[in-house]
Design a protein around this nucleic acid. Structure first.
Lengths: 200, 200
DNA sequence: CCGACGATATGAACACAGTTCAAAGGAGAC
DNA sequence: GTCTCCTTTGAACTGTGTTCATATCGTCGG
């Protein structure tokens, strides 16, 4: 733990903080090496001493976003207390919607970010997504105790994707004006419909 | 219809053709003014005589994509013949999935394109989306003849968003390996569940 | 304390985008 | 033929991310 490492670790945090603020305020496009360096009080080159490139920095911001979103979702579920599985999924989905509409630019950045070479999706990204999926799989297993794991996985991804799609539509087109209540209705409808379905 | 106008119209087509080929082959990022000019056999400046900026050109490509996708979806529905409404929606959704997986980069470009100033979403964009929605609303009205228009609208957007989300997940993560059959299963499940649901 | 050397940080310079605009080119009128 | 006005051109400008020769710093032997 040399002084050098400390300094670098501190700068690393400072840079992520600055990038986070910028993403929150103005979105991914406002991340510029020179501005970031100025805001963090370092040289442009310093950024590249710490991160391979700006994408790596954005990935770091996204990691934080994932963590915060996960925390909020878990908290919402905890607050909801002991409710039936379908209801629990609705609470989760609404928490997801809440996060996305409270931090639209941050949330967009999660997905805007181009997985440049499609092969090298960082494994922590998949891990974070996996944890999110597990939150959905649990109530699904309660709802469909007979279903084999593959089936549960399919349902999990399908429901996540569906809710994600609805949130996407909602966040994109704040202007096109789908009111918040409608989005919650859609979510509740889809989840309820899925929960009430009989597996073939 | 002067010679100038003819020339410009021809170049316009040539440019959109070139951009289309590039999007199809390498995605949005491969649209570069200089390359495009070379491919179309014109100067860089000429592009700006015809389009306000490259975004306008990409929008023109997207318009074509919308049209082609619409055609394929309608065709799939025509081929399916006279089937019950839920089945019709499944055919439609699968045609959507087909298009997206056959032309992933083109399809991505539809959504990657940043509506720069979020207010000025071109009205034809909304119109094209509206037509797509109408295709969904029709079977929904058959399924739920009692539902008021607002309700139908909500269901339409919700289902479209859900299917879109599933397709998005599928196309994004060709690598993460959700097999095609699974995606079709998810789609069928969601649509069937929604169709069988009772509106509160 | 000094000096020297390897590690580290710096920011000017580079590569490469989109976009502009002064200048060249060309079509038509007389 | 030449004058005028519109069109077209591509070098130049702006603004990115990224690099790398150079300067600076920290450490340690003398």
């Amino acid at each position: 733990m040399s002084a050098v490492e400390d300094r670098r670790a501190a700068l690393r945090e400072t840079l992520i903080d600055a990038a986070e603020r910028r993403v929150e305020a103005d979105g991914l496009a406002s991340i510029r090496a020179r501005d970031l360096a100025k805001e963090a009080g370092c040289s442009v080159g310093a950024i590249y001493n710490i991160f391979d490139d700006l994408d790596a920095l954005i990935l770091a911001v996204n990691l934080r976003t994932f963590a915060k979103m996960g925390t909020e979702i878990r908290q919402a579920m905890a607050e909801a207390g002991d409710v039936p599985p379908a209801q629990r999924m609705i609470v989760m989905a609404n928490a997801y919607l809440d996060y996305a509409s409270a931090h639209p630019r941050r949330w967009r950045t999660l997905f805007d970010f181009k997985m440049s070479t499609e092969s090298d999706v960082p494994e922590w990204y998949l891990k974070a997504l996996g944890e999110l999926f597990e939150l959905i799989a649990t109530p699904l297993r309660e709802l469909f105790p007979e279903a084999e794991p593959e089936r549960i996985d399919m349902l999990t991804r399908g429901l996540f994707s569906s809710v994600h799609g609805i949130v996407l539509l909602g966040v994109e087109s704040r202007i096109s004006g789908v009111p918040r209540a409608r989005l919650e209705e859609m979510i509740a409808f889809i989840i309820t419909a899925a929960s009430d379905a009989t597996l073939n």
